[in-house]
Design a protein around this nucleic acid. Structure first.
Lengths: 342, 342
DNA sequence: TTGAAAGCGCTAACAC
DNA sequence: GTGTTAGCGCTTTCAA
């Protein structure tokens, strides 16, 4: 299995006339080396074109220099945009990023944070769980540095980075109500164990109604299995078939909103005149669609950077720091789907 | 750096009363083990909860069990959808996927396929180069198994997987011409060294005109730095400001098409009545946008699977197989942006 | 400040 | 079929 002979630390040491220990010191930029030896070693390194073997270093150090990012779906624009930020942040800090896509599969998600064999492949994980309950999260490999994205609440053993979903959802709904709409629907509820994300949004939806002294029509809260275009399109059909259809819709993601708008237009409705639509995530699609989509915009750059920084801090700590709840800012971006053109 | 004491192969060997060699054989499912010893070893493994150390295995085997996928931008839906397929294909074959995003940065791209230190982190690379010229590709680490996606042509040392861009582009343009449109524009040309992808499409655009006996108006071929929504929106503004604007547009990506449509609608034009638009890539956005986007649909699943299979074949070969040109099928999908509603 | 040498945990060539 | 053992190439403790 030895493909050709590679230049090793020993080769450099031999050429420079020092021990491998010293070469290691030089290569890794440790302090205790005289300028003279450093120069000599450096010359040998250059001359031989030595490049350290990452695999060996990993084994010796017991770390891999990699972090894993685990998302349910890669082709969801929101995750793709977030990933972009995470990869950049990780690389500037010397870490590589291993990507895993779980398809929301509970067993896969479990295995990932449980098995020690995987464990060594990465020094920590940034995880956006979908199928995994809080309980399942809790009995993971306790040595695994973990940062959670999305809507879980930290149990004190990991950090959680996200925006304030309840507030954001309340603001989104209030925006619709303040437009004078009276029958506001919600698309995306998931009233079961792993649907925290959705539930927080529903909660905000309710709070908005309460704050404006209005009652919620429960028939206007639509459940969807995921937050996709198809989910939005299907749910919207259902809503339009109601005896009293809504005049506004709060969608739990921009994809859902785009799907809903697709159905509305196919059915000959005008957006926002007949039905106003608001989304969530501020993905780029929504800025170019017809109509453009009003949305809640989380600060993705900050979420990405914060997640990476906290994770690396965890990785570097002998004693794990306390699990924090970290809130990134968000803002309401008003576009055509609620404000109309011009 | 020893965080607690881990269970090693030796521990298992001791408990089972066999040598570590035998344990290794059992764990890796090699043939030469009696059923009796296998069972005994397995019991020891289970009892101790032994899990092999991947880092050590990597070092011993000189391979990492990882492949790298390098794309210019992760948040481009086309790449995101492709990546999804690649990750699935790799995982079912026991490989992890390391993702790298170059932002089209030439130096970064070069370093990735040149430095041996990276080299060991992955056993092969699936690469979608943007800034890298054919020449730069050629003087890479020759031992690195490589599969290229996109529009490079193989020089015989790597495989290239893609669709037949010239034919696809000709078909797209012919579709517009056959609609009776007489002033067909093209958005996305890149007449410089690293713009192969664009140039092939422009070539198809010209061939279509030739095949229909029409002349190309050079003013209708618009260059763009990238294939994004913004590029499409900007180019379309320029086209509409021409004395004789086009009545149809061939866009070199769906994102460009979505951007162009955005501008058209903002300017009060009807699509396709005033201007017909066709895109390229068949990203999901185009199936839900308003109007939906006619497009060239490459078989992404096949591209992903083929790329992974060829790469693993390369990785497993003592003598590198010849570099192949592999063509995935594509098809024209007609939607509202050229056919209108209903 | 530098050297010698013992790991890190696994694989695989070689011998029995 | 199984054991012995020498690596894989680096880090790092301990001594000097």
């Amino acid at each position: 299995m030895r493909r050709g002979r590679h230049i090793t630390l020993r080769d450099v040491a031999a050429l420079a006339g020092v021990s491998s220990r010293t070469v290691s010191n030089v290569v890794n930029g440790y302090a205790n080396v005289t300028e003279a030896t450093r120069a000599r070693v450096q010359r040998a390194v250059d001359e031989l074109g030595y490049q350290p073997n990452v695999l060996a270093r990993n084994l010796a150090q017991g770390r891999s220099g990699q972090i894993a990012v685990v998302v349910p779906y890669l082709d969801t624009p929101y995750f793709a945009e977030l990933l972009q930020g995470i990869i950049r942040a990780a690389r500037t800090r010397g870490y590589n990023v291993l990507i895993d896509q779980t398809d929301g599969d509970r067993a896969h998600e479990r295995e990932l944070i449980t098995k020690r064999s995987h464990r060594l492949l990465f020094d920590g994980v940034i995880f956006s769980p979908l199928g995994l309950s809080q309980a399942a999260l809790a009995d993971r490999d306790p040595t695994l540095p973990l940062v959670i994205l999305g809507e879980r609440v930290s149990d004190g053993t990991f950090d959680h980075v996200g925006i304030d979903d309840v507030t954001a959802s309340r603001q989104a709904t209030e925006h619709l109500l303040d437009l004078g709409r009276t029958r506001v629907a919600a698309i995306g509820d998931q009233p079961y164990e792993t649907g925290e994300a959705a539930q927080l949004r529903t909660q905000g939806f309710r709070e908005a109604h309460r704050s404006r002294g209005l009652a919620v029509d429960e028939r206007l809260i639509i459940r969807t299995p995921r937050f996709n275009r198809l989910d939005g399109a299907t749910a919207m059909k259902h809503l339009l078939d109601l005896p009293e259809p809504p005049d506004a819709v709060f969608c739990y993601s921009d994809l859902v909103a785009l799907g809903a708008i697709h159905t509305l237009i196919a059915r000959g409705k005008r957006v926002p005149e007949d039905v106003a639509v608001i989304g969530y995530d501020n993905i780029e699609d929504g800025a170019y669609s017809n109509p453009t989509v009003t949305t809640i915009s989380p600060d993705k750059e900050m979420i990405a950077t914060t997640a990476v920084e906290r994770l690396l801090l965890r990785i570097g700590s002998r004693t794990p720091p306390p699990g924090l709840e970290l809130r990134a800012p968000h803002q309401l971006i008003v576009r055509e789907s609620t404000a109309g053109r011009g």
